[in-house]
Design a protein around this nucleic acid. Sequence first.
DNA 1: CAGGATCCGGATTGATACTG
DNA 2: CAGTATCAATCCGGATCCTG
Lengths: 122, 122
Amino acid sequence: MKSESILIEDCSQTVLAINDTMEILGGKWKVLIIACLCYQSMRYSELLKKVQGISGKMLSRELKELEVNGLIERNVLATSPVSVAYKITEYGKSLKQLTQTIAEWGLQHRARILKGMRQEKV
Amino acid sequence: MKSESILIEDCSQTVLAINDTMEILGGKWKVLIIACLCYQSMRYSELLKKVQGISGKMLSRELKELEVNGLIERNVLATSPVSVAYKITEYGKSLKQLTQTIAEWGLQHRARILKGMRQEKV
DNA sequence: CAGGATCCGGATTGATACTG
DNA sequence: CAGTATCAATCCGGATCCTG
């Protein structure tokens, strides 16, 4: 019941809210793509390298969905063979905190694993 | 190499870190389950109701994985027909921030949609 | 280079029935 | 109540080929 950040007090509300987010960011790749684009705009081929393991098909599919949802912007550049730059929108930037939180937890988790999981304070 | 909050400066590092998190929280349900259990311990049947849409099979499977990863704890209660209480562990609580961030974004997103998406500041 | 179309195997998940 | 087992449908996603 804090004010500040909207903090939801009800569990059911939280479930609904999380589902909403999931609908947009669900799947295996969207968060990764957003995270990358939060660092800098990239072209298709660059993303293909950065987002480890994604296939071309998946990448274009996910990019399209993100674009539809207004999280990223697509710009075709009139270069020699044609290149396409993807950049995050202002709205998309609202996800930066989220991606960072996820990444940070991942780091901490890894650190914990490497430490051999000592001090299990369960 | 900052101290404080580990803030990752490299995009590739972020991708790896996010993948680590995904391995633990991937799928459609784990975040929801964790979020619920962050509010209070619950029994199987309670979770089944709270986590809208999940099937019994999925619920028990996900719970098992979360338990293996040390995020939740399972306690069989010697009640009449037998009930099982699930509670979050200390380690699991480290995900609370994450679930809240996700939920808050979902709320904001919904608010934005309802507003008819005015002021598209793209 | 960007990305659509197609084919296809494997992973996910739901329904249902069953157990302790 | 808290699961497990089985079957079947679906979806995910990779490989490959093709276009502009």
